[in-house]
């Protein structure tokens, strides 16, 4: 009797038996992998190597746009000193945008996972759909919405809630733009991890802790942590490297590092070495942050 009852619960998994996901060892793997890996090698790794070598080159004095192969760390020194405020702004704005995106995205992801019912698919489409309109068009629309003549600034001014008198061309507009543009990257991973969670666990949490906020903090949030982690990275990384929001919504002075790299490469003759050094510094800084962040809130689900 007990044996049968036990058997009915245990589906008879054979844990010590070989995992049926028996992976094969064969040359086929390399054949399948090769074209894609080659592509990433030629168009991702090789360009990075080239960029690294450019970042160490020196300029010919007096010949803008010409430089020679060298091992010159001055470019990095200049990147870190002259442009330190730009880095600081990039990370500050991206960090604030990530935080705001989290605050805005979480209730939406939560509602989609637990409250939407049969509207779930429709909500999913609604989250993705705005992103079928061009990124630049939407950002430009924000510049219209936040413009001095627009209703947002008008209303706030009328209520005397806007000390500077305008939103457009301020860091606030830049952060708002960044938050908006990368929001789905926050919503979708959080939704995915909440959807996998068992709502009964949250109900049990609600049973154990009277306070709804305590339930959220001790049960719901930890369960969605892998999604939050992925979402913050997917938001922060592109936001830190972005220059379009600053260009379309931000002030004339006090740019972000993305703008500097863009200008140095495309507008300033002979800007390549410093721009390359800036790019490398940005990438290194982000990789270090990602590494520390993942180690702190660790999960293997990212890779």
């Amino acid at each position: 009797m007990t044996a049968l009852a036990h058997a009915a619960v245990d589906p008879g998994a054979d844990p010590a038996a070989p995992a049926p996901r028996a992976t094969k060892r064969s040359w086929t793997a390399y054949v399948l992998l090769l074209p894609g890996a080659l592509w990433l090698g030629v168009f991702f790794l090789l360009p990075l190597v080239q960029l690294a070598s450019v970042s160490l080159q020196s300029r010919y004095p007096g010949f803008p746009g010409y430089y020679y192969r060298d091992v010159n760390l001055d470019n990095y020194a200049s990147a870190l000193t002259d442009y330190a405020p730009h880095f600081a702004r990039s990370f500050l704005y991206a960090g604030l945008a990530t935080l705001l995106a989290f605050v805005v995205a979480y209730p939406l992801a939560y509602a989609m996972a637990f409250k939407a019912g049969r509207w779930r698919n429709l909500m999913m489409i609604c989250v993705i759909a705005p992103f079928f309109t061009s990124f630049i068009l939407r950002t430009f629309a924000w510049s219209q919405i936040l413009a001095d003549e627009g209703w947002v600034a008008g209303t706030l001014n009328f209520l005397h809630l806007l000390p500077g008198g305008n939103i457009i061309n301020t860091p606030v507009a830049v952060i708002a733009g960044l938050t908006y543009n990368f929001l789905p990257f926050m919503v979708l991973p959080i939704y995915a991890s909440l959807e996998r969670a068992d709502p009964r666990v949250i109900e049990a949490g609600g049973d154990l802790y009277a306070n709804g906020f305590t339930t959220f903090r001790t049960v719901t949030l930890p369960m969605s942590m892998p999604g939050v982690l992925a979402g913050t990275l997917l938001t922060f990384i592109p936001a830190a490297g972005d220059f379009v929001n600053m260009e379309l919504l931000g002030p004339q002075r006090g740019k972000m590092v993305g703008n500097v790299i863009n200008d140095q490469f495309l507008a300033i003759p002979g800007g390549y070495p410093v721009a390359a050094a800036l790019s490398f510094t940005l990438m290194a800084a982000i990789l270090v942050m990602v590494f520390l962040y993942v180690r702190r809130f660790g999960t293997e689900e990212l890779v």
């Binding site: 008879g12 998994a13 054979d14 844990p15 010590a16 038996a17 070989p18 028996a22």
Partner: peptide
Amino acid sequence: PSGCGKTTTLRMIAGLE
């Protein structure tokens, strides 16, 4: 019991191992 080798035996008869 679980892990006694019965499934592996079966898979060898099937040719999956």
